[in-house]
Amino acid sequence: HMTFVALYDYVASGETDLSFKKGERLQIVNNTEGDWWLAHSLTTGRTGYIPSNYVAPSD
């Protein structure tokens, strides 16, 4: 899985979304859904959809 880092805080707007904090590391499970990607937080262990423009590839 690709690892990304959150650029901003995001508060989930629905049950399927994943809240995260700036700097949180996320594994992308599925990024074929356009602007919303299914991600797994390496910080909280939770999985949900995130806005793709809130994250950047982590080196």
Rank of each mutant, 00 (worst) to 15 (best):
Glu24Arg: 00
Leu38Arg: 04
Gly48Gln: 01
Asn53Asp: 09
Leu42Asp: 05
Leu38Asn: 02
Pro57Arg: 08
Asn30Pro: 06
Thr3Ile: 15
Trp37Met: 05
Arg46His: 08
Thr47Gly: 05
Gln27Tyr: 15
Leu18Thr: 04
Asp17Phe: 15
Tyr10Gly: 01
Ser52Gly: 07
Phe20His: 01
Asn30Met: 10
Thr16Gln: 13
Asp17Val: 07
His1Ala: 13
Gly34Cys: 09
Tyr54Glu: 01
Tyr10His: 05
Gly45Phe: 07
Ile50Trp: 00
Tyr49Val: 06
Glu33Cys: 14
His40Met: 14
Ser58Ala: 14
Ser58Lys: 08
Tyr10Cys: 04
Tyr54Gln: 05
Ser41Glu: 02
Ile50Met: 02
Asp59Leu: 13
Leu7Trp: 03
Ser19Cys: 05
Lys21Phe: 10
Leu38Trp: 11
Val29Asn: 05
Arg25Thr: 12
Glu33Tyr: 12
Phe4Leu: 07
Gln27Thr: 12
Glu33Gly: 13
Gln27Leu: 15
His40Trp: 10
Glu15Trp: 09
Val11Ser: 10
Ala56Thr: 13
Val11Gly: 05
His40Leu: 15
Gly14Asp: 08
Leu18Trp: 03
Gly23Gln: 02
Ala6Lys: 00
Trp37Tyr: 06
Phe4Ile: 04
His40Asn: 07
Ile28Met: 06
Pro57Lys: 09
Asp59Glu: 14
Thr32Tyr: 09
Thr16Ala: 11
Gly14Tyr: 10
Ser19Gly: 08
His1Asp: 12
Glu15Asn: 11
Val5Gly: 01
Asp17Leu: 10
Thr16Cys: 15
Leu42Ser: 05
Arg25Gln: 11
Tyr54Lys: 05
Val55Ser: 03
His1Cys: 14
Asp35Glu: 13
Trp36Met: 10
His1Ile: 12
Ala6Gly: 06
Gly34Lys: 14
Tyr54Val: 05
Gly23Leu: 03
Phe4Pro: 00
Pro51Ser: 03
Gly45Ser: 06
Trp37Gly: 00
Asp17Thr: 08
Asn31Phe: 14
Thr44Gln: 06
Met2Arg: 13
Asn30Thr: 09
Lys21Tyr: 08
His1Trp: 12
Val55Gln: 02
Gly14Pro: 03
Ile28Cys: 06
Thr32His: 10
Gly48Thr: 01
His40Phe: 15
Tyr8Cys: 11
Pro51Gln: 05
Gly45Ala: 05
Tyr8Met: 10
Ile28Ser: 04
Arg25Cys: 12
Val29Thr: 07
Gly34Val: 12
Thr32Ile: 11
Thr47Asp: 07
Pro51Val: 01
Thr3Asn: 07
Asn31Cys: 14
Thr43Gln: 10
Arg46Cys: 08
Leu42Met: 10
Ala56Gln: 11
Tyr49His: 06
Asp35Tyr: 15
Thr43Cys: 13
Phe4Glu: 01
Leu26Ser: 00
Trp36Leu: 07
Val55Leu: 08
Pro51Met: 05
Tyr54Arg: 06
Trp37Thr: 03
Leu26Ile: 07
Pro51Gly: 01
Ala56Trp: 09
Thr47Ile: 11
Asn53Gly: 11
Val5Ile: 14
Leu26Lys: 00
Ala56Leu: 08
Ala39Arg: 00
Gly48Glu: 01
Asn30Leu: 11
Thr32Arg: 09
Ser52Arg: 12
Asp9Ile: 01
Leu42Cys: 11
Pro57Leu: 12
Arg25Val: 15
Asn53Lys: 13
Lys21Trp: 05
Val11Phe: 09
Thr3Pro: 06
Ala6Phe: 01
His1Arg: 08
Leu42His: 06
Val29Arg: 07
Met2Cys: 14
Leu26Arg: 00
Tyr10Pro: 00
Leu18Asn: 02
Val11Trp: 10
Glu24Tyr: 01
Ser19Gln: 05
Tyr54Met: 11
Gly34Tyr: 08
Ser19Lys: 03
Asn30His: 09
Ala39Thr: 02
Ala56Cys: 09
Ile50Cys: 02
Pro57His: 09
Ala39Cys: 06
Glu33Pro: 10
Thr47Glu: 07
Pro57Tyr: 08
Glu15Tyr: 10
Val5Asn: 03
Ala12His: 04
Thr44Met: 03
Ala12Trp: 02
Trp37Lys: 04
Gly45Pro: 01
Val5Pro: 01
Trp36Cys: 07
Ala6Leu: 04
Asp17Gly: 14
Leu18Ala: 05
Ser58His: 14
His40Ala: 09
Tyr10Trp: 07
Asp59Ala: 13
Thr43Met: 11
Phe20Ser: 00
Gly34Gln: 13
Leu42Lys: 05
Ala12Pro: 05
Lys22Arg: 11
Asp9Val: 02
Val5Arg: 04
Thr32Ser: 13
Lys22Tyr: 04
Thr43His: 11
Met2Val: 12
Leu38Ala: 03
Leu26Cys: 01
Ser41Gly: 02
Thr47Val: 11
His40Asp: 03
Leu7Tyr: 03
His1Gln: 13
Trp37Ala: 03
Thr44Lys: 02
Asp35Leu: 12
Asp9Leu: 01
Val29Leu: 15
Gly34Thr: 14
Val29Trp: 14
Phe20Gly: 00
Lys21Cys: 10
Glu33Lys: 13
Ser52Pro: 07
Glu33Val: 11
Trp36Thr: 06
Ala6Ser: 05
Tyr8Thr: 06
Pro51Glu: 01
Thr16His: 15
Met2His: 12
Arg25Tyr: 15
Glu15Phe: 09
Arg25Leu: 15
Val55Ile: 08
Val5Leu: 07
Glu33Thr: 13
Asp17Ala: 08
Thr47Phe: 10
Asn31Leu: 12
Thr43Phe: 08
Leu7Lys: 06
Val11Tyr: 10
Asp17Ser: 08
Ser13Ala: 13
Gln27Lys: 14
Asp59Met: 12
Ser13His: 13
Pro57Ile: 10
Pro51Thr: 01
Ser19Ile: 05
Asp59Gln: 12
Asp35Val: 11
Thr43Gly: 06
Val5Thr: 10
Tyr10Leu: 03
His1Gly: 14
Glu15Lys: 12
Ala12Leu: 02
Ser58Cys: 14
Asp35His: 14
Glu33Phe: 13
Leu38Lys: 05
Leu42Ala: 06
Thr47Leu: 08
Arg46Val: 06
Thr44His: 03
Val5Lys: 05
Val5Gln: 05
Thr16Glu: 12
Tyr49Asp: 02
Asn31Lys: 15
Asp35Gly: 10
Ser41Leu: 03
Asp9Asn: 07
Lys22Gln: 08
Ala56Pro: 04
Gly14Asn: 14
Gln27Phe: 15
Gly23Met: 03
Tyr54Ala: 12
His1Thr: 12
Leu7Pro: 02
Glu15Gly: 09
Ser13Arg: 14
Arg46Asp: 07
Gly34Trp: 09
Val55Gly: 04
Leu7His: 03
Ala56Lys: 11
Thr32Val: 09
Gly23Phe: 04
Tyr49Pro: 01
Arg25Phe: 15
Thr16Gly: 14
Asn30Asp: 15
Pro51Leu: 05
Lys22Ser: 07
Gln27Arg: 15
Tyr10Phe: 08
Leu7Ser: 03
Ala39Tyr: 01
Ser19Asn: 05
Thr32Gln: 14
Gly14Ile: 09
Tyr54Gly: 05
Gly23Asn: 05
Met2Gln: 14
Val55Lys: 02
Glu15Ser: 12
Tyr54Thr: 05
Asp9Tyr: 03
Val5Asp: 04
Asn53Ser: 15
Ser13Ile: 14
Ser52Cys: 09
Phe4Tyr: 15
Glu15Met: 10
Gly34Ile: 11
Leu7Thr: 04
Gln27His: 15
Gly45Leu: 07
Ala6Ile: 02
Gly34His: 12
Phe4Val: 14
Ala39Gln: 00
Gly48Lys: 01
Gly45Trp: 05
Ala56Tyr: 10
Thr43Val: 13
Pro57Ala: 11
Glu24Leu: 01
Asp17Asn: 09
Trp36Asp: 02
Gln27Glu: 12
Asp59Tyr: 09
Gly48His: 02
Gln27Asn: 08
Phe4Met: 11
Leu38Met: 08
Ser52Ile: 06
Val5Ser: 04
Glu15Leu: 13
Trp36Lys: 09
Tyr54Trp: 07
Thr32Cys: 12
Ala39His: 00
Lys22Leu: 05
Gly23Glu: 03
Asn30Ile: 09
Arg46Asn: 10
Thr44Tyr: 03
Asp35Cys: 11
Pro51Asp: 04
Leu42Thr: 07
Arg46Lys: 13
Asn31Tyr: 14
Tyr54Phe: 12
Leu18His: 02
Ala6Asn: 01
Asp35Phe: 15
Ala39Asn: 00
Trp36Asn: 05
Asn53Trp: 14
Pro51His: 06
Val55Thr: 04
Ser41Pro: 00
Arg25Glu: 10
Thr32Met: 12
Glu24Asp: 12
Thr3Tyr: 15
Glu33Met: 14
Tyr10Thr: 01
Val29Ile: 15
Val11Cys: 12
Leu18Glu: 02
Gly45Val: 01
